[in-house]
Amino acid sequence: AAAYPADPEDSDLTALTVLEETAEYLGAGFADLINLFQPERILVGGWAGLQLGTRFLDTVTEHAKEYALTYPAARVSIGLGTLGPDAVTVGAAILPLADFFARGGRRADPETAGEQPAWASTVRERTAH
């Protein structure tokens, strides 16, 4: 037996079935987030959001609201992010800025910066010899 359907229409139907099932799982995952954190908004982004978002976002939203508790589900909106495939990079780049602003725009005090990682002491010991 062939691993893939021989008819291209069967392949399209199989792919569509897998994507619809994935949309249900994603909606169920969003429902868990909605129940736990009660967010006002969930944004789907990155490459998956760009490729699949417009086609399956309504299905994901329906499943999320079906699986979530009624009250938090009524208060959340689910949409597509606008940062595109660079969303994770932009988010990571903002982390040092958020830390800087949390300290009131001051540099971290080296004495209170916290415990050094174990590898740092090993490197210091090896370079001392």
Rank of each mutant, 00 (worst) to 15 (best):
G45Y: 00
V88P: 14
D32Q: 07
D32T: 10
T17P: 02
R75N: 12
V76P: 08
A23E: 06
L13P: 02
A118W: 13
L43T: 03
L69D: 00
G105A: 10
D12N: 13
G84K: 01
P5L: 04
G49D: 02
A15C: 09
A2C: 12
A87G: 09
E9T: 08
A64Q: 02
A68C: 03
E125F: 08
A113M: 04
G49C: 06
V76C: 06
A120D: 13
D109Y: 01
L57G: 08
G104T: 01
A1F: 11
T112H: 11
H63P: 00
T54Q: 15
L26M: 10
G46N: 04
T82C: 06
A2V: 10
T59P: 00
D7G: 04
K65P: 00
R41A: 13
A6T: 10
A15K: 11
A68E: 01
P8T: 05
S77K: 12
G79W: 03
P8V: 01
G53L: 00
A113H: 01
G105Y: 06
Y25A: 10
G29T: 00
R126N: 12
D10A: 11
G114N: 01
I34W: 00
A128I: 06
R103V: 02
P39R: 06
E62Y: 02
A120H: 14
T14W: 11
A118E: 15
E62F: 02
S121M: 10
E66L: 11
A128R: 15
V44C: 06
L50G: 15
R103W: 03
G53I: 05
H63T: 02
T14G: 06
F37V: 05
L36T: 05
A31S: 09
A48S: 11
A74Y: 04
G91K: 09
P96A: 08
V76L: 08
P5N: 08
I94L: 15
A48Y: 07
L33H: 01
Q38G: 06
Q51C: 09
A113E: 09
V90P: 05
